[in-house]
Amino acid sequence: MEKGEILEEKKVIENYVESIYVYDNAGVCLTSCGIKPENLDEHIVSGFFTAIKKFGQKLIPGTVVKSLIMSGHKLFYNNFENITFCIQCYDDLPNQVIDYILNRISNQFLEIYQERLPIRDGNISIFSDFSTYLSQFMEQPLIEGLLEDFGYKVLSEGVILFDEIREKILFAKVPEEYSSRKQIAMSGMLINFAKKLSNEYQGGDVNSILISSENRWICISKREYIYIIVLFPKTKNIELNIIVEKTEEILDNILKMLKIELIK
């Protein structure tokens, strides 16, 4: 697969995420990055989060605090192997996107440090390299990462995201021969045509079209001015409802994020 045209203006993760903390069950912050209040030690923050977590477990046994919602902001937590990964972000960032970010960070962290975690003995300098990774991660384009991750998870052959108003490809990861203007324009025309047909039957707006052809499944979904085209090989055994459901889910999330970008 080759990359086609990519986002014109790349909004990176730090446009959405304010800070990231990684800490252990003692409340010791192993590493962190992002915006922090001045004069506030990172261990004090992670200690507070740890105490809240433990308090929650006592309040409702068998549960774990997954998030804290504040006005305009929210904190999300993910626990893996006695390590908690926390991100502080704006409250309009979709939860699925937050899950994606938390999973990316935690997988990377555990891949590098899992074996050293039990023997760290208070020594947190072994995690110092990870703050460099976090800083680099924060500079990555979020929508691009999300779409790549989505494409990988649903075993797709290619993903194209198109902005109808600006007539621009926002993201394309497909074999080059599948990302021409003509092909994308046809997808838009097809949605509009299907909408007309749907109206004939009083079906209302069209969310998705799934084409089952000889060689592949082609799913086209549209929300407002954004549409997505996902190509799946026919050789893979994929459930149709999953294709549509997942495609619509990612599109909804992306639309929310594009709207956040417009506001900011």
Binding site: D41, F48, A51
Partner: peptide, 19 residues
Amino acid sequence: TEGTFEEDYISTVGAQFSF
């Protein structure tokens, strides 16, 4: 020590933090 964080809030969960 330094760094006591929002004393009243922390007290509600039964601990205070400093270093």
